[in-house]
Design a protein around this nucleic acid. Sequence first.
DNA 1: TCTCTAAGCAAGGTTATTCCTCCTTCGGGA
DNA 2: TCCCGAAGGAGGAATAACCTTGCTTAGAGA
Lengths: 209, 209
Amino acid sequence: MSGSQKVKVYEEVLQQVKAYIEEHHLSPGDKLPSERELSELLNVGRSSIREAFRALELLGLIETRRGEGTFMRTYRPYHMVELLSTFILHEARTKEELAAAKMMLELEVINKILPLLTEGHIEHLTSLVKGTNSEKEAQTLHHSFFQYLFEISGNELLNRMWQLIDGFANTVHDFTFSNSFYKKVLEEMERGKLNDVRSWYEKELNLSN
Amino acid sequence: MSGSQKVKVYEEVLQQVKAYIEEHHLSPGDKLPSERELSELLNVGRSSIREAFRALELLGLIETRRGEGTFMRTYRPYHMVELLSTFILHEARTKEELAAAKMMLELEVINKILPLLTEGHIEHLTSLVKGTNSEKEAQTLHHSFFQYLFEISGNELLNRMWQLIDGFANTVHDFTFSNSFYKKVLEEMERGKLNDVRSWYEKELNLSN
DNA sequence: TCTCTAAGCAAGGTTATTCCTCCTTCGGGA
DNA sequence: TCCCGAAGGAGGAATAACCTTGCTTAGAGA
């Protein structure tokens, strides 16, 4: 007969919690109602609340402290990404999609900050690159390099999208960029031109494949 | 006892499940042990198993079918991306950021499909644009125009991201593009050049501000 | 023999209860 | 004033109970 469109209670709870957060304008650090309170408020069992909370916790959106309560959290994808990594290593298609999204975001942020760049910015970035010699630090360099760019851009949304994608991408694939990549980017930044960065970027990707 | 045994049971279960999957070489479609079985096997309550399963389900790694069991699933990040996005967007959604993200995605998809374009694609897009005369249909045109491009690109992740941003953007602000915008885009597509699309795009945004 | 139906069973869905542990608070005594 | 301990609040966890769904199978009837 009619395909059971049954929405699970914990999914319903997720939506309700989301609505609650919006309604009360909760920000990171703010306290959510206790499991028992929510249980009564939404007329569902405490277990269902817990199932929803544990899912949100794994995503990194909330934090629950025993004896204290459950709190909003500034988003950190760390926990979830680590778990996912072991499951999705073999799916090539999503791997490519992740790489594409990552590249898009990183090229975009470079493009966006071009008009905002100051001497100080360039110096900071240069010192970042020059301070990195070992292979080990390469991934850290990449992250802090672009993190700095996103901070300059001031676009929180793009920044969060990037952090998420970057986390995933790094578990699936080792994006290692040669030191010269950053140097070239810096050179072009100083000239205010970025037309060729894309092609360099793509070359780097091929190298590390 | 050193007091705080910080690791929650459901987190332990996550690791055990991961180990089980690896040990038994489970692939998408394969069945996991039932909640009750796992509960006995790992010597934890069924609630804890459920908390772990619900978290995995939300991540998109497993699928549970009532009365049947729990099964491995081919990973699709889109489910989770959706939930995350609503939270992330809630934290950081200014009109400008949404517009920037939207523009980035739309320019990106144009760029990505350039090498893939055929005569048929161009014709389809042209007929879309020419068939739209009224202001009312403008938003629909924009959506179907780019939806078609994303389909050509085949990148599900970018498509998903765009749909989310587009949905949000449209609720916050009316992005209306003049008909000539699409014509220009099509012209440049045929030439295989896209350098100037960005500037047109930005002009359109200013017009509609 | 074939087919349809009803019973049984397995599995998830949901809730309620109970007990435990940890943290915060608050009040009394030194 | 300061310190300590009891009480209460909140999450952590286990367990039992009952429901719905879907599959399987045995049996009755055509």
